[in-house]
Lab assay of single mutants.
Amino acid sequence: MADQLTEEQIAEFKEAFSLFDKDGDGTITTKELGTVMRSLGQNPTEAELQDMINEVDADGNGTIDFPEFLTMMARKMKDTDSEEEIREAFRVFDKDGNGYISAAELRHVMTNLGEKLTDEEVDEMIREADIDGDGQVNYEEFVQMMTAK
């Protein structure tokens, strides 16, 4: 299944994987998964984290390695993001709930994920998604960005 991913997608997933893999040992533990999910405003229980890991832990060693992570991402993409997942993601970014993602809100979430971005990089990300040019990202623009192939 992971063989249907483009090189660009694999590179993006590698970057995402390293955000989860806090200690850089090449595997994601339940603790690391929990840290990232909490930084995104989720509050999973230990059991939920274990279930999430077990779902993709092909070799049964209790952690997720990069090939397992790729399989999980490929699977998720095949079920292409349901509207509800996209709306949920939008809410994570839209901290003040005004229906727009500002540069400050984007920077806040990315920083929580451990991504240190310059102001230019954040502005560039907003510009790429900002179709109507108002300097922020509304829900429609967010959907376009998330579903762009």
Results as ranks from 00 to 15, higher is better:
A2V: 12
D3T: 03
L5I: 03
E7P: 02
Q9N: 00
I10T: 10
I10Y: 02
A11K: 14
F13C: 11
E15R: 03
A16C: 03
F17E: 05
S18W: 08
D21G: 11
D21V: 13
K22M: 05
K22A: 14
D23E: 11
D25V: 09
G26T: 05
G26S: 10
T27S: 11
I28Q: 01
T29A: 12
T29G: 00
K31Q: 12
E32C: 10
L33H: 07
G34V: 05
G34N: 05
M37E: 01
R38P: 06
R38E: 14
S39T: 10
S39G: 06
L40F: 03
Q42W: 04
N43F: 15
P44V: 14
A47V: 10
E48S: 05
E48N: 07
L49F: 11
L49I: 07
D51C: 00
D51A: 10
M52Q: 01
N54W: 08
E55C: 04
E55A: 08
A58C: 01
T63V: 08
F66W: 02
E68D: 09
E68T: 10
L70F: 06
L70D: 02
L70E: 00
T71L: 15
T71M: 15
A74D: 08
K76L: 03
M77R: 12
D79K: 08
D79C: 14
S82N: 14
E85Q: 05
E88M: 06
E88Q: 11
D94W: 02
D94F: 03
G97V: 07
I101L: 11
A103C: 00
E105K: 06
E105F: 05
E105G: 11
L106S: 04
L106M: 04
R107I: 02
R107Y: 01
H108E: 15
H108Y: 13
V109I: 10
L113D: 00
G114F: 03
G114C: 04
E115N: 07
E115T: 04
K116S: 07
T118E: 11
D119Q: 02
D119I: 02
D119C: 15
E121W: 02
E121H: 05
M125R: 04
E128V: 14
D130N: 10
I131V: 12
G135R: 10
V137F: 07
V137N: 07
Y139I: 03
E140D: 09
F142D: 04
V143P: 14
V143N: 04
Q144Y: 08
M145N: 15
M145R: 03
M146I: 09
A148S: 06
K149E: 11
